[in-house]
């Protein structure tokens, strides 16, 4: 088995008397596409915050890209990429400015940044719009750019939080082409989504219910285990009896 890029052992986060994430243990292998599913309020966001070094766990252990989530959060943040629908690029900056800004934050030098930035604009076919404010570009382009910018510093691991929300079905699939291309280059992908067909595109999928990981396996095995035709049925079987989330 390939080396683990994420490894957690009874990772837990409490807020007062409420246990948002309850002793989750799993590992993500290098080069894997790992789908992280769960109902609203199941604890996904809290778990992601701990794994990206933004929130300290209450108890348990975890390493991400080889770094400890308690003591080495700065190293974690430098060695991962992160993209979400809510937080990605600045709409008031142009593609070129966004690349420079985020590349700078990730510690790329100016010559390296210029070279990588131009290569990126070429590969995305964005040269013509490189100096147009991002707000004026189609959502699909923005998402591709955001994904590429999150990989600019060549992290081994990228977190994608509902990266395809709201885009049309063709753009959504082109985005997955980009994800596959990244894994071909050895990048490990940790992805959340509400589109259950996208769960099928993952190597393995975990489903959180009430703060715990209720199931974790390949899509094929999960469907077999729950005697389901689709991942949507698997998800609904697991998430319907959830006790919390609502309220």
């Amino acid at each position: 088995m390939a080396e683990a890029v994420i490894q957690t052992e009874k990772l837990t986060r409490k807020f007062g008397s409420f246990t948002a994430v309850d002793e989750i243990s799993f590992s993500v292998a290098s080069g894997e596409i790992f789908g992280f599913l769960g109902a609203n309020g199941a604890g996904k966001t809290t778990a992601m915050k701990m794994l990206t070094g933004l929130l300290a766990p209450t108890s348990g252990e975890a390493t991400v890209a080889g770094f400890d989530v308690y003591r080495e959060t700065e190293s974690i943040r430098r060695n991962i990429g992160y993209m979400s629908q809510r937080f990605s690029l600045y709409d008031d900056l142009t593609p070129r400015e966004n690349i420079r800004f985020f590349g700078g934050i990730y510690g790329l030098g100016s010559s390296e940044l210029r070279e990588k930035g131009e290569r990126l604009l070429d590969s995305l076919d964005l040269q013509e719009s490189a100096d147009t404010r991002l707000a004026a570009l189609p959502l699909g382009w923005k998402q591709k750019l955001a994904f590429s910018v999150a990989l600019l510093h060549e992290p081994k691991l990228i977190f994608l939080d509902e990266p395809t929300g709201g885009v049309d079905p063709v753009t959504r699939r082109r985005f997955w082409d980009m994800i596959y291309d990244a894994t071909d280059r050895g990048v490990t992908v940790f992805v959340t989504t509400h589109y259950m067909d996208e769960a099928e595109y993952c190597d393995r999928v975990s489903i959180m219910v009430d703060g715990r990981i209720a199931a974790l396996d390949t899509p094929a095995m999960l469907k077999k285990q729950f005697a389901a035709e689709t991942m949507n049925e698997v998800f609904i079987q697991l998430a319907r009896p959830a006790k919390r989330g609502e309220g």
Binding site: A39, N40, H194, F235, I236, E246
Partner: peptide
């Protein structure tokens, strides 16, 4: 139903 999980959507 945007951003809502599959169970709540149903």
């Amino acid at each position: 139903t945007t951003g809502v999980d599959a169970v709540s959507r149903q």
